[in-house]
Write a protein that binds this DNA or RNA. Structure first.
Length: 503
RNA sequence: GCGCUCUUAGUAUAGUGGUUAGAAUCUCGGGUUUCCAACCCGAGGACCCGGGUUCAAUUCCCGGAGGGCGCACCA
């Protein structure tokens, strides 16, 4: 079979090898914006999360998990109820849908539209005799389009599926404050599902209606943001930064700049925020993304979310979709805690240091990853076609199978038996080993290449005499011969040494 | 959500108003094979869903769902 190095080959691989399937439920035709992970995709996802959990212990983060459904008041306080419900107008004739506020602003650039009530916008549309640009028909009344999925709990209590995990983490603030014993900043993360009722989901898993988020929070004092101990350790690292000024000049090449310099030149205001950018870069790099495909892009002022003081997206360059945001780093100020303090009538002014007299509501810095976007962009980035061979260059600890074990030929019973024995022994050592004896040896290698398996172990005639096997490396296809008794240790060692040295 | 367009085995496709719906790859069984998708034998698997027209619909028409592209949307 001819294998082309193109995006179609990649797209079919994702399905064929059981990474991502959908839209689900496929047997009923699918519902747009919902996807399932197959065994390989789920193994990859779990491996990424396991790596992240391990790394975040190193950086001093704790993990929490909150309900995915929260009552209405939470979203009123967070601001999502206002911001996630869009006013839309529908043409009576062609039923084209427009965002009422954006449409008004476009038609009447001089008017101040932001913050107007639905009724006022409706009046304005009427007063200005605005009609559908396509067919000149007048509009219906303004309707609500709710980006949050609404549900009912118990006896008619209105609740919403969370559109982000972050807010649910903030609701734990007084508990976390107690738990942390004034050791600020409090570093906490949450991994879990979030839901958004996208108008028209596209681009596969990049815009799903149910997706996994991985959001890290720093609760931190205003002073501490400016004088931040952890910053000192990482300030010499360089990041590719594309600020909004460069963007305004229509440039898309980021400037490679050290964090120390970025602070000095006021490109970044706060060392603690710079630290967050670094963390997001670190977590991206350790998955095996090459530098060339990573950049940070700063949001312009009107692109920012309602809570943000500064915002940069970590973007990955993809073949299929251009630059894709996989992570947003947001300076949320004390907006969230202030609001939840007001709405819940709690006092979130706390002492963050040794002086009990000094109290303030903590600031929040947030690093928000979309896990499904990480997985898609990673797979696309490391997908390679080399001389007609598909090679998925996953780093070893992320690969669904750590190793695969083959008998060189399948019809020699003693070779096969030894291969099974070797495979079992690896499993005993809790190494994810996969056994395969179907087809030719070459075919089995190729199957594993498509899954990103770094090492294939083959038992041949020589093995029967001297208890050695070959280890074939995925990228070079070179083989080394080792003793069966050393195999598990060798694999474990190889696996560990293959990450942690990217910068 | 609008417009255009598409939807056939796991994957990528050919084709048809009456076909045993074809070839590739794939999967399974068997043979062969001393290391990179080889070969031989055998088997398996598909017309997105609903309605209409018709003696007969996978094929034509309408609607729905889903995908692609453009517009709009994307805290």
């Amino acid at each position: 079979m001819k294998i082309d190095d193109n995006i179609e080959t990649f797209n079919s691989l994702i399905k064929r090898r059981g990474f991502i399937w959908g839209p689900s439920p496929e047997i009923y035709g699918g519902l747009a914006g919902f996807y399932s992970y197959g065994p390989a995709g789920m193994a990859l996802k779990n491996n990424i999360l396991a790596l992240y959990r391990r790394e975040l212990r190193y950086f001093g983060f704790g993990e929490v998990e909150c309900p995915t459904i929260m009552p209405e008041i939470v979203w009123r306080a967070s601001g999502h109820l206002d911001r996630f419900i869009d006013p839309v107008i529908r043409c009576k004739k062609c039923s084209t849908l427009y965002r009422a506020d954006k449409f008004l602003q476009e038609q009447c650039p001089d008017l101040m539209i932001d913050g107007l009530s639905f009724q006022k916008m409706e009046n304005l549309i009427h007063d200005h005799n605005l009609s559908c640009p396509k067919c000149e028909t007048p509009f219906n009344k303004i309707e609500e389009y709710n980006l949050m999925l609404k549900t009912q709990v118990g006896n008619n209590v209105t609740a919403y599926l969370r559109p982000e995990t972050a807010t649910t983490t903030y609701l734990l603030f007084n508990r976390l404050n107690q738990d942390a014993r004034r050791q600020y900043p409090i570093k906490i993360y949450q991994i879990g599902k979030a839901y958004r009722n996208e108008i028209s989901p596209r681009q596969g898993v990049l815009r799903m209606r149910a997706f996994d988020q991985f959001e890290l929070q720093l609760f931190i004092g205003k002073q501490q943001e400016m004088v931040f101990e952890d910053f000192e350790e990482i300030k010499e690292n360089t990041l590719p930064l594309l600020d909004w000024k460069l963007q305004a000049e229509n440039k898309d090449k980021p400037e490679i700049i050290s964090l120390e310099k970025a602070i000095k030149t006021k490109l970044l205001k706060k060392p603690a925020y710079a630290y967050c950018l670094y963390i997001s870069y670190y977590l991206t790099k350790i998955l095996g993304f090459p530098e060339e495909v990573i950049r940070f892009r700063q949001h312009s002022i009107n692109e920012r979310a309602h809570y943000a003081d500064d915002a940069w997206d970590l973007e990955i360059k993809t073949r299929q979709f251009g630059w894709v945001e996989i992570c947003g780093v947001h300076d949320r100020t004390n907006y969230d805690l202030k609001r939840h303090g007001e709405f819940s009538k709690q006092n979130f002014e706390v002492s963050m240091g040794s002086d009990s007299e000094i109290k303030e509501i903590p600031q929040i810095l947030e690093i928000a990853f979309g896990i499904d976007r990480i997985i898609y962009t990673l797979l696309e980035t490391i997908f390679n076609v080399e001389e007609g061979r598909i090679n998925l260059k996953l780093i070893p600890i992320l690969a669904p199978n750590t190793v695969a074990v083959f008998p060189l030929v399948k019809n020699k019973e003693n070779i096969r038996n030894l291969a099974v024995k070797v495979h079992r022994a690896l499993l005993e050592n809790r190494i994810n080993s996969f056994f395969d004896s179907a087809g030719s040896i070459g075919k089995r290698y190729r199957r594993q290449d498509e899954l990103g398996t770094k090492w294939c172990i083959t038992i041949d005639y020589e093995s029967l005499d001297d208890n050695t096997v070959t280890i074939r490396e995925r990228d070079s296809m070179d083989q080394i011969r080792v003793n069966i008794s050393d195999l598990a240790e060798i694999i474990k060692k190889k696996q560990e040494s293959k990450y942690l040295h990217f910068c």
